[in-house]
């Protein structure tokens, strides 16, 4: 790891200014992913701007919904009474991720911004367009068991690794960010990018923009929920495929559905078509199956991840069943 300067501003503006002024500066909050990247030579900031002094830890509820500060820890959010009551899907997703220790360190903002776990990205002896644009995608014709089946490009087939983000995508969340020009709100589903020709960019954020908070609207689908995560071992492993499902029903008729998948794309993958299909239909395994099949349109597999073409729809249907409370 290279040497770097370390500063800990107390004011939001100072933190943002530090990045604006210095092209080699980076924010650090929990550090659980950034330090990992720095140790492996994938990030080499010359200045670390520690934002932990900023007052961004609050969890509050108003008429519109839940607002969670970007610096709230994953464990604090998962254990928060208000969150457990209002957004059980988020709690399930948080608890499915990482480990007790990591959840005690990882912040909400950092979790959103964690980078892919693609092994080609992590080994600097191997090609990776995300790490080194133009070097090629190692995974494309390589070992791609964990990789995308949706939204990839010939430049990158990596997947976004966060569980929490999948739930936020499903829950119609928005993120509040601040930059030199002030604040803006971004729909969570618009935050992460597809790789396209610029896989090095994970999100639409500018490098000197800071996530301040996450807003989760209070919607009728927040209670009938399920987060399903399929993985190689029963805990402490990234998802092969995960599904966040949320339903609102009225007398067995689905009035609203929200579904997002993890482990299948460069971003949390919202299943808009499937949601639309389900709305107005009765709760039934057959409908969930149909929705799942609809969601799979356009999916394409590589050498080692064809199993996801079956695992994903199975998981969608199972998560919907669990959310709806049918066996």
């Amino acid at each position: 790891m290279n040497q770097f300067q370390y500063i800990q501003p107390a004011k939001q503006k100072a933190a943002i200014d530090a990045l604006t002024k210095d092209a080699k500066a980076m924010f650090i909050a929990g550090g659980t992913n950034l330090l990992d990247l720095m140790k492996r030579g994938l990030a080499a900031p010359e200045k670390l701007v520690d934002i932990n002094k900023l007052p961004l830890k609050k969890i509050e509820f108003n008429n519109n919904g839940l607002r969670i500060g970007a610096l709230a820890l994953n464990s604090e959010v998962a254990q928060d009474k208000l969150v457990r009551e209002k957004q059980p899907l988020l709690v399930q997703a948080l608890e499915a991720g990482a480990s007790g220790q990591l959840r005690n360190m990882a912040t909400m903002g950092g979790n959103i911004l964690q980078r892919t776990r693609c092994p080609y990205f992590y080994d600097i002896a191997l090609p990776c367009n995300k790490r080194e644009p133009g070097s090629g995608c190692g995974a494309l014709a390589g070992f791609n068991r964990m990789h995308a089946i949706f939204g990839f490009s010939d430049k990158c087939i990596a997947v976004h690794p966060s569980d929490m983000s999948v739930a936020l995508a499903a829950l119609d969340a928005t993120v509040v960010v601040a930059g030199p020009q002030g604040e803006r709100q971004i729909l969570f589903t618009d935050l992460h990018r597809l790789p396209g020709d610029q896989p090095e960019k994970d999100t639409i954020l500018e490098r000197n923009e800071l996530i301040l908070a996450i807003d989760i609207p209070d919607k009728p689908f927040a209670q009938k929920v399920h987060y399903l995560k399929a993985r190689d071992r029963a805990s402490y492993a990234f998802a092969l495929v995960s599904v966040a499902a949320a339903l609102a029903t009225d007398k067995n008729i689905i009035t609203a559905a929200r579904i997002a998948m993890g482990g299948v794309a460069h971003k949390p993958w919202r299943l808009f078509e499937a949601e639309k299909f389900l709305e107005g239909k009765p709760v039934s395994e057959a409908n969930f199956r149909s929705a799942a099949e609809l969601a799979m349109q356009g999916a394409k597999a590589f050498n080692h991840n064809a199993y996801k073409l079956k695992l994903a729809p199975n998981s969608i249907a199972a998560a919907l069943k669990a959310a709806a409370g049918i066996a």
Partner: peptide
Amino acid sequence: VMDHRFGRYVTGDFANYHVPVHVD
């Protein structure tokens, strides 16, 4: 797992080489 094109392991850490954890 080795990527034979490069002769390098692509599962070279505890996040990719899965040994059982408590819950397994």
